[in-house]
Structure formats: structure tokens, C-alpha cells
């Protein structure tokens, strides 16, 4: 009796969770297709007119370009720094390596807003007022922990005897690393880079303190549209973002598999 009840409860909770989690996404997409200028669900006909207005929005293209620029550069630098550090922490036997690992992952658990104000004051103190370099530096701190976390986990599971095996089978050490370690760890690289990139693209609480009128990242621009002209154009942009995020996840699934991306 209790077992059956438990089963029912578990499945109901899972179904409810999925509906609950997808509800805001579905509603956003529906609103973006609705002809009504106030946010209401489409009743009889659908329209793409709000999507046509997206291209005419002030500053949207610039903010998208800036956001992608910052995210790509920050991800590239984080991959480089994170790979070196993860190898060091996973393979080294020096004192304090766990502390270093925790330290490098810790920004994940710190409130973004506090990081933002701290960086704002720090950059001002250093005389760095330009938005672009500030954003780049700050976003390294946002992306690096994701890369570091997945790579250390991947390296911890990596069997270094594979490199020995490749060497005895005829590969030099560098070639063994390249032909064995890199492909085996590729899922960790991809997962870390992907989530780090998404976190950078989505970041609001750090960026808000470091942007200026000419350099607005996409989330800041979006909030501004919401404040200025709340019409379904924002819903259309949101729907496009939902679509792009789905594409990124599908790509990730093809490359890595969703379960590995979810860290399970």
C-alpha cells in the first residue's frame, strides 16, 4: 500500500515539477505569438509581428555582439587557465592543492551582486573605468569555476594508466596526451565551457555594476526594455533565447550526452 502510494507521489511530483518548470517558457512563447499588445495568451490567431519588431529595437544587436564577445573571450581564457589548474590540482601532490581547488571553484557559491560591487570599487581604485576590459576580467571569474569544476571531476575519474598504455603502444608522451587524454576528457571540457559560457551570457548581478551607456550586455538591455516598453517584443526576444538555448543543449547532447552534462 505504502509502496504504491510512494510511487504515485513520486511520479506526480515529477510531472508537476516538469509542468512547473516549463510553464514560464511555454507562456513566454505563447505571448510572443499573440496579436494583443498587452501580455495575454493568443485566442484565435497567431502572429509573428512582434518578431519583426525585434530587429528594430534600439541597441539590441550591439548588446548581443558585446555579450557574445565577452562570453567567448572569458570562456577561452578560462579554459586555458582552468585546464592547467585542474591538471595541477588533480595530479600534484603539493601541500594546499585542495585549498586551491576550493578557492578556484568558490565564486560559484558567492553572491554575484557582492562580487559585482567589490569589483566595481576595485576597478575604480585601480583607475580602470572602461566597461569592456572590466566586463572581460569579471567574466573570467564567472566562467572559470564551471570549467574548473567539471575538469577536476573529469580528471579525478581519468585513469592515467591510459597514457602509459598509449606510450607503450608507440606514442610519445605529448602525442599520448593529445590522442588519449584530450578525447577522453572532451566531455568535461565541453560541459564546463558550455555552462560557463551560458552563465556569462546570462549574468546580470555582476555586469550591472560594470557596464556603461554604450556597453550594455544582453540581460541588462532586456531588463531595460521590460522597464521602458513592456510589450510582447520582449516575449519575442525571450522566445528566441529559449530557442537558442535549446539548440546549445541539443549540440551538447550530441557531443556529450545530456546525462553527463547534468553531472549525473
Amino acid at each position: 500500500m505504502i509502496r504504491i502510494l510512494a510511487r504515485v507521489v513520486a511520479w506526480v511530483m515529477l510531472a508537476a515539477s516538469v509542468v512547473f518548470l516549463l510553464a514560464p517558457l511555454v507562456v513566454t512563447i505563447l505571448v510572443s505569438l499573440s496579436p494583443s499588445p498587452v501580455f495575454s495568451l493568443p485566442t484565435d490567431r497567431l502572429t509573428l509581428s512582434w518578431y519583426q519588431r525585434v530587429g528594430r529595437l534600439d541597441g539590441l544587436v550591439e548588446s548581443v555582439v558585446l555579450t557574445l564577445e565577452v562570453a567567448s573571450v572569458a570562456t577561452a581564457i578560462s579554459l586555458l587557465l582552468g585546464t592547467l589548474a585542474a591538471i595541477s590540482v588533480a595530479r600534484g601532490r603539493f601541500w594546499g592543492r585542495e585549498t586551491i581547488a576550493t578557492f578556484l571553484i568558490s565564486p560559484l557559491m558567492l553572491p554575484g551582486l557582492v562580487l559585482g560591487i567589490a569589483m566595481l570599487q576595485y576597478f575604480r581604485m585601480l583607475g580602470l573605468r572602461a566597461a569592456l576590459p572590466s566586463l572581460l576580467l569579471a567574466h573570467i571569474v564567472i566562467v572559470l569555476p564551471f570549467v574548473m569544476r567539471t575538469l577536476t571531476a573529469g580528471l579525478a575519474r581519468f585513469d592515467f594508466a591510459l597514457i602509459d598504455a598509449a606510450r607503450t603502444l608507440g606514442l610519445s608522451y605529448p602525442r599520448a596526451v593529445l590522442q588519449v587524454m584530450v578525447p577522453v576528457l572532451a566531455p568535461s571540457f565541453i560541459t564546463g565551457a558550455l555552462f560557463g559560457f551560458l552563465a556569462s551570457v546570462d549574468n546580470y548581478p555582476v555586469s550591472i555594476f560594470l557596464t556603461d551607456v554604450y556597453h550594455r550586455t544582453l540581460p541588462i538591455q532586456l531588463l531595460q526594455y521590460l522597464g521602458e516598453s513592456p510589450d510582447p517584443t520582449v516575449a519575442a526576444i525571450s522566445a528566441i533565447i529559449i530557442g537558442l538555448t535549446m539548440l546549445v543543449l541539443i549540440a551538447g547532447d550530441r557531443l556529450v550526452g545530456l546525462n553527463r552534462m547534468a553531472g549525473v
Binding site: D164, R167, T168, L169, G170, L171, Y173, A176
Partner: peptide, 9 residues
């Protein structure tokens, strides 16, 4: 180096 020896492991 290991890859220059003809040794299987």
C-alpha cells in the same frame, strides 16, 4: 622512451 621500445604491456 616507452614508445621506442618494442615492449607490449
Amino acid at each position: 622512451a616507452p614508445h621506442r621500445r618494442n615492449v607490449g604491456v
